[in-house]
Design a binder for these strands. Structure first.
Lengths: 114, 114
DNA sequence: ACATCATATTCCCATATGGGAATGTGTCAA
DNA sequence: TTGACACATTCCCATATGGGAATATGATGT
């Protein structure tokens, strides 16, 4: 087999740095292919192809307007990544460690009650 | 150019589902190549190679012990992913949604307890 | 020294990649 | 209709992939 296609899921789509840059750029609102190409210093076909990948996994949506195409971010499509990486957050985030402590405390209280 | 090598950064390393599975498996503690291979139903060379990629980007560490090799998770190496995806969190998580998530989590934890 | 166990490494191949260049498609204005 | 514009698509190629099979490495026990 070969490497997992970029359009398989959000993880693969977002692995490419240029595509993360595109999403970052779209964070401030809708944008046109040309605008994005100029902002990121990429060629138009390159941007179009990257946006195609991002659209395939649902992380961007398009709005057609005459000869323009307005791309916009669809944040919730990134949630799987957030949810996955969040399960490891306790290994570096002390604030969440405290949340764990709180949960543990709640659980011990539950045990006492039941 | 070709696709960005898997050992370029954590984003690329973690794009492959099998490697995420490996990290999930290591979440419960150290493990041996053989153990991981059996748990995930992968061949030994496949696991070794995946672990090599994960080690290259620093998301796992190894401890040599005789003819065994104990791999362990190095969570903080995942922080760049967390930091990046977190900038989009507002697009799906309002403050109230977060409270819902917390409550849901508490409930699922309760179920696990009882 | 030897056999065995646990891993790592190499060789193989079908497959997909990202980027450049060129071309296709659809829209608008005159 | 014709041209200009904004994008999408196609064709090209060097490059890396993941997995299977085979082999190498290295430590342990006898």
């Amino acid at each position: 087999m070969a490497r997992t296609p970029t359009t398989t899921d959000v993880f693969n789509a977002v692995a490419e740095a240029s595509r993360r840059d595109l999403l970052d750029a779209l964070g401030s609102g809708e944008a046109t292919v040309g605008e994005l190409a100029e902002r990121l210093g990429l060629s138009q076909p390159t941007v179009s192809k990257h946006l195609g990948v991002l659209r395939a996994v649902g992380v961007v949506h398009v709005r057609v307007d005459g000869k323009h195409r307005w791309y916009r971010l669809n944040g919730p499509a990134l949630k799987p990544i957030h949810d996955w990486v969040r399960t490891f957050e306790r290994t570096w985030n002390t604030r969440l460690d405290r949340l764990d402590d709180l949960l543990a405390e709640l659980h011990s209280q539950e045990k006492k009650q039941s």
